[in-house]
């Protein structure tokens, strides 16, 4: 039954992608396809990265309302980026190869995230409330430190950082596509290999220890993958707070199963449909200028509140 749903989702995503590529082409079809193809690829990467990162994080933290974005993962990435600009100076920074920079940033991000969030998951074990608050507060703190650094550097440097601090799906940084695709696909592949372990980790630390799957090791590996995925997505479009939440909530609704063999691809597909379909609708149908991120944030929040209220009534 879930297989059919996955198939349907795949078809829906294909339809959205085709619509996005071929509707409303003015002028050279070839040029339009090139241009749109890159954007489409970026949207798909972001979608898959955000969705899989959110689902994995919810599994290892044992709840369905925390996402990497809420816990401050993307804030951490922006901070690392800002710190790099401050340390190197904007001119030197801009001369470096963007792909190499992204690799370095992603590596730093992994190290920092495993240290910070690994500690958090260990300390907050079984105390979800404390973990949640810590994450939210940490996110504010990281953003504030970034803000402080941005005030300290001069305006020309600020412009470099600013590009990464605001989410714009329509203006994804397509130059980074190659490296991003590499990192993202690698991380997604490893996540797929972890699917059975994730099923067990979802049972909680005690049960997974008892079943021979030490939770700390699994958490650390998942955190590494999540960091890579968030780094890729943030580098491409900037931070998107509630998108992961929206996608994971919808995933559990459409695919009510615990099996990550279904959840991981399912969430990536759903997220692709939302991003590609949404971008297509905004660009071609409504001719809106509003960035999709704002709409997604709004819808994501509303859907979340509705789900919560509905879930509570049951």
């Amino acid at each position: 039954m879930y297989r059919n749903r996955l198939l349907l989702l795949t078809l829906a995503l294909l339809a959205c992608a085709l619509a996005y590529l071929f509707t409303g082409v003015k002028g050279s079809l070839e040029f339009a396809l090139m241009f749109r193809g890159k954007k489409l690829a970026a949207l798909l990467l972001i979608g898959a990265a955000q969705a899989v990162a959110a689902v994995m994080f919810q599994t290892i933290s044992g709840n369905r309302i925390l996402t990497p974005a809420i816990m401050g993962f993307d804030a951490l990435y922006v901070l690392i980026l800002t710190a790099a600009v401050v340390a190197l100076g904007a001119p030197a920074y801009q001369q470096l190869d963007p792909g190499l920079l992204m690799l370095t940033n992603a590596t730093l991000m992994c190290a920092a995230a495993v240290m910070l969030f690994g500690l958090l998951l260990r300390k907050g074990q079984g105390d979800l409330m404390r973990m949640l608050l810590t994450g939210v507060v940490l996110a504010v703190m990281l953003r504030s430190i970034t803000g402080l650094l941005q005030r300290v550097i001069d305006p020309s440097e600020y412009a470099v950082v600013q590009a990464a601090s605001f989410a714009r799906f329509s203006r994804a940084e397509t130059d980074l596509l190659g490296v991003s695709a590499l990192l993202c696909c690698g991380a997604l592949g490893l996540a797929w290999r972890m699917r059975h372990r994730l099923d067990v980790l979802a049972l909680g630390p005690v049960a997974s220890t008892s079943l021979g799957e030490p939770p700390l090791r699994g958490q650390r590996r998942a955190l590494l993958l999540i960091s890579v995925l968030v780094a890729v997505s943030t580098a491409l479009v900037g931070p998107v707070a509630f998108f992961g939440l929206l996608v994971s909530a919808l995933t559990y609704l459409v695919l009510p199963t615990y099996r990550h063999a279904i959840l991981l691809p399912g969430s990536a597909l759903i997220s692709g449909v939302i991003l590609v379909g949404g971008q297509w609708a905004l660009e071609r149908v409504f001719a809106f200028t509003t960035p999709l991120s704002v709409v997604v944030e709004f819808l994501g929040g509303v859907v979340f509140l509705l789900l919560l209220m509905k879930g509570l009534k049951r």
Binding site: H196, D199, V200, A202, L203, G204, V206, G212, E213, Y258
Partner: peptide, 28 residues
């Protein structure tokens, strides 16, 4: 894990599991 199993004091897990799913994890 094949030698020793523990049933902890408080058990709570992802509620979407069916009983068969949960028991099935014992074979993991």
């Amino acid at each position: 894990a094949r030698r020793l199993a523990i049933l902890p004091q408080t058990v709570h897990a992802a509620s979407r599991l069916t009983v068969r799913d949960l028991v099935g994890f014992g074979r993991y």
